[in-house]
Design a protein around this nucleic acid. Structure first.
Lengths: 334, 334
DNA sequence: CTCTCCCTGTAGAACGTTTTCTCGTAGTAT
DNA sequence: ATACTACGAGAAAACGTTCTACAGGGAGAG
């Protein structure tokens, strides 16, 4: 008699269609053991009542939520935004929902956050470049199924990532082939895995190219880090700067403009990632384009494969492509 | 005997602590009618087993999921990214999770998407600038509790938004006080509500300022829309351009640079929103700063109030602030 | 000393589904 | 004509939790 206003339940549909609630459930789920005519009657009753199965109750009995969690260290970072975008769209296309968890770079919180979100989802896509390898190995089993983005290979968790070493190699090659021999590398978060990959690539280049010198200056990962180190960069006497990412490069460009330093005339500058605005700085930024949206799509594919018991996706590595724009040129003759 | 590998349930904790399962539930939820000593024993048992209450089962019985959905038309748009960021962080701080749904500007999908996400969440924050008012009114009751972002006042749904009219007025005043009299307004999505607000503000300015002429050119909402209309802008003979948003302005700036048109020397350009990169274009963009992160925070506050039965938040309007940078100047003397 | 009240712990219903198991009926083959 | 098979539909258990009744026991008061 009561509960008029409440959402219609499966029993309401059953009552209206004059069948048992189990028949409704079967009819709604397209179970072939139900008479077509009856199934249609049930569908009609459901439509009349505007009935939709309660996903929470469904999740409880089925043990799956049709939802995955994405743990992201910083929603402000364009790269993570792009990964989220690609992932979200791919997951939506497969009928899944996406829970987004911004860990705000809080390393302690990250751990708990990932575990907590896992409880209400079917899997976790983890972007945690700064987390210690030890912690990660301890965390991953509790998260399974999981997908790790931009980390080294894991024991039993699929990994998708970009080959930062390759991108960095292309950048260095580009600069050296232009004639640069004295470079500065603006390092990002030194704990991050993607930093290590770049560092190694630079070291390799130094031992490969004759007379190449690369000075490392620790900057950071954001715009302000780039502006902050401008003076140290100028003092170094280098002819080209390899910034940790586009944000740092753009910050540096901005500071150089203020100081009336010509780019690329007096100094060449490169970024990394090819974020949406990298093409629109002045001069436009030469950078290594990381296919971040595709990274998100691939991460979903790896998750989806685990969820549906498909083939275990092997580690997938996408290769950044060098995009030469206006911020690099041959060094000025002395 | 079986189920060794399964997550520990409340009964496992009860068994270990030597109490009934309902006692465990009460102890875990801090119910004061349980003996402190016993409560502690239960907590210890739970900790030993690494027990955490299954949120899905919890949601089913409690009727709430501790999750809200955010429907966003385009995850690529910096403004929505900022709203999401502010919202996500505020919600997380209050112990809520955020489900993100990218409607990809698909107006038909948007409707169904909002309804679907509502079923697995406690409320929906709706960003749908293009949805027809009629549709919105029909949709909102099904979504309740809901919060609408950047739309006109609603019957019984809290609204948070920015005063686009005010921002536009400031921009026009800024340009006219610099001496500009012939302006171009690059219109965005003509169906969008935020477009209408700007249009009205411009119309008001035209009737207020003596000799002011504003030509409207329909462009779009993204970078490419700005580049595409560059020639029409130049042909118009205007001395200043009011772009629909920063993206359009940046696209225009880029096209103007290619055409060797000096900004602000030959042409002043303004944006809207103050997205993160607006400060770093060349010249830096004069724009009306929309506090998008705060918009997200406010949207959460309005949702949280409804969820906790607090005071019904009245419609909240944040005022954009004019940020004068290098892209505007007095018109060149003829 | 006994009665009553209160405090603490236990059993069980409820949340809304899915799904297994069982039963009934109808059709076919012997 | 009877028995067996097959198929469709209903009853009931299960998912893992919360919370309302309810019962039992101890202590304080009359």
């Amino acid at each position: 008699m009561a509960r008029e206003s409440s959402r219609p339940g499966i029993t309401d549909v059953a009552k209206l269609a004059g069948v048992s609630l189990s028949t409704v459930s079967r009819a709604m789920n397209g179970n072939p053991t139900v008479d077509p005519a009856l199934a249609e009657r049930v569908q009609a009753a459901a439509a009349e009542l505007g009935y939709t199965a309660n996903p929470v109750a469904r999740s409880l009995v089925l043990g799956r939520t049709q939802t995955v969690a994405v743990v992201i260290p910083d929603l402000e970072n364009p790269t993570f935004q792009a990964i989220l975008r690609g992932l979200s769209r791919a997951a939506t296309a497969d009928g899944y929902h996406v829970l987004v968890a911004d860990s705000r770079e809080d390393l302690d919180e990250e751990h708990a956050l990932a575990r907590a979100t896992r409880l209400r989802t079917d899997g976790v896509i983890l972007c945690a470049p700064r987390m210690l390898e030890r912690e990660l190995r301890e965390l991953l089993p509790a998260l399974s199924p999981a997908v790790v983005v931009n980390r080294g290979p894991q024991t039993s968790t699929p990994v998708v990532g970009a080959d930062y070493g390759s991108g960095m190699r292309e950048i260095v090659d580009h600069l050296t082939s232009l004639g640069h021999r004295r470079l500065v590398y603006l390092a990002g978060a030194t704990r991050s895995v993607t930093h290590r990959a770049r560092q190694d690539a630079i070291a390799a280049a130094v031992s490969r190219v004759d007379g190449l010198e690369v000075e490392e200056i620790t900057a950071g990962v954001d715009f302000d880090s780039g502006t902050a180190v401008a003076d140290r960069v100028l003092a170094s006497g280098a002819t080209a700067v390899i910034a940790y990412n586009d944000l740092v490069a753009m910050g540096l460009l901005s500071a150089l403009t203020v100081r009336r330093v010509e780019v690329p005339g007096q100094l060449s500058v490169t970024g990394f990632d090819d974020i949406p605005f990298a093409a629109y700085t002045s001069p436009p930024l030469t950078t290594a384009a990381v296919p971040a949206v595709e990274l998100g799509t691939a991460a979903w594919a790896a998750m989806h494969a685990q969820l549906t018991g498909g083939d275990p996706t092997p580690a997938l590595t996408l290769t950044p492509t060098l995009v030469v724009r206006g911020s690099t040129a041959a060094p000025r003759e002395d």
